[in-house]
Design a protein around this nucleic acid. Structure first.
Lengths: 287, 287
DNA sequence: TTCAAAAATGTAGTTTAATTACATCTTCTG
DNA sequence: CAGAAGATGTAATTAAACTACATTTTTGAA
């Protein structure tokens, strides 16, 4: 576990040969899997026992063990592919495939998400007087979800899921306000116009949308959520979940930035909610 | 890839020794990773070359290669653990941890989801005259999302996210109607009462909630979404996503059951939505 | 700068694991 | 029941990994 991260760690004290070996493994980890000690030694230009010492030095049993660990770690981080759902699929097949497809879309969105953009978006939120969340269609529920989430963290935000209300909103926001536009395709006319109007009014506009799209064009920080799969029949819905994770990221990062008081806040909120609930029972009832 | 599934496949024609080997590997795959040919041969009671032949017969290079593949596959299916988010985490760390935590919660929910319950829920939906979706708080946006999704598949359903409206609803639904209750904790008073009233009125009640909870007690088919982690500060939000996947599963399975016409329906819907959008551009604009 | 100690690396040899070649046994098929 | 095809085991071979020891390089203190 964390083998590659370990090798990547530049703070680790390493001998010259070990450094070359680490670099070689990082350069092409897959290739190492089909190499013998001798092959890797030759590749790097060191002796065979050095390769062995390198492995034992990592706390492993030897070179074969090293390859085993490496294979496991590579498999774990290899992006998943969304399986096709077919007409005859049973419930259990649909379950397996849909969960797998969801994981695949998480992989894809995570890969495309720029942490600089996240940081910029959080900064923008931080400095805003008010926050408005807008989404239409499937993204409407995402906007509502975001509103709920931010509220939990003690941040007042308002979701607008109605084209008219969204238009009215643009007449009320100005410099110092923030609009968060959620659009899967990034090509919904109403949303692009909304972003444009808000930007023109001087508001900061954050996009959770497809990069390079009309909506993205009018946004400041753009959190890339590449859609791009309406080709498949069932997948669009799985990938939309990734938008929600992106919002989780924003909310969490912000909460961390603001420091310790949110913890007390969350505890207080839990107390308030507890009164609306039955107490936790014996069988599976958790808070 | 699919090595274990391959071994599990009973239709495959296998010799007696190969069968014993497959059984042994399936019994404890992890253990095999630290065995040599000789050790595995002794364990199963066959000769060493037989072990080797077993591996090459699977299309692999030999026993070491077999172990490599096995390690990769085990790593891939091993449930992930949600990493703890810490105060000093950077944006990129928050991204990595939150995506990982989301994958972990998908693993957990998938493991707890019973395909019999899914099938029963789909049957119930199938036979219902009307479908109402209810959720409160964070589950409200899930209900709205479900409404949108079902609508896309041509199934009229109505989401109620307001306690009063939900109460009024119970006076209007009867036998032949279906109520889908979405509750994370399963202990929200209002939701449990709602389920009880609806069930008393003769409606079919499906729960997407914690098994064994007060809400679940009044539901017919219960799609288990074990919450159980308010202990952690940031994780509740990641696990909620799994509810959405469960709804995806329901909607998809149902669409499959209904057969081919949904495809034409989706195509028609895409056409209608296209008019609200800018055409796909060169840079990243996809349908 | 120099010398000694410690660490790192390499060479050669040893051990262990994996594979191959061949013989024997079992199990179908005609 | 005979014969052939396939499966399995034994023994030998090859190849890989590891160990012991010698050599080189680096490091730190005088």
């Amino acid at each position: 576990m964390e083998l590659l991260a370990n090798l990547r760690d530049s703070t680790a004290r390493r001998s010259r040969a070990a450094g070359k070996l680490a670099a070689c493994v990082l350069r092409d980890p897959e290739a190492v899997l089909s190499m013998t000690t001798a092959a890797l030694a030759a590749e790097v230009g060191v002796s065979e026992p050095t390769v062995n010492r390198f492995c034992t030095g990592l706390g492993l049993k030897g070179f074969p063990d090293f390859k085993l660990q490496l294979a496991a770690e590579l498999a774990r981080q290899q992006p998943r592919v969304a399986p096709d759902i077919e007409a005859g699929d049973s419930s259990s097949q649909v379950i397996a495939k849909l969960f797998e497809a969801t994981r695949a879309s998480l992989d894809r969105v995570q890969a495309g998400l720029d942490d600089g953009a996240v940081e910029a978006a959080v900064q923008t939120l931080e400095q805003s007087r008010s926050i408005s969340l807008c989404g239409l269609g499937a993204s409407a529920s995402v906007a509502l979800d975001a509103q709920h989430k931010l509220m939990r963290f003690g941040v007042p935000a308002t979701a607008y899921t109605d084209v008219i209300n969204q238009r009215v909103l643009t007449t009320n926001i100005h410099s110092g306000d923030c609009l968060l536009c959620i659009s899967w395709t990034g090509r919904t006319r109403a949303m692009a116009e909304l972003a444009e109007l808000a930007a023109a009014a001087g508001a900061a506009v954050i996009g959770i949308t497809a990069p390079g799209s009309p909506v993205a064009a009018h946004c400041g920080p753009v959190l890339a959520v590449e859609g791009g799969e309406d080709t498949e029949l069932f997948t669009p819905m799985t990938s939309r979940l990734a938008q929600l994770v992106v919002i989780d990221v924003l909310a969490t990062r912000w909460a961390l930035l603001r420091g310790g008081d949110y913890q007390a806040h969350l505890a207080r909120m839990k107390q308030v909610l507890a009164d609306t609930r039955y107490p936790a029972g014996k069988s599976g009832g958790r808070s």
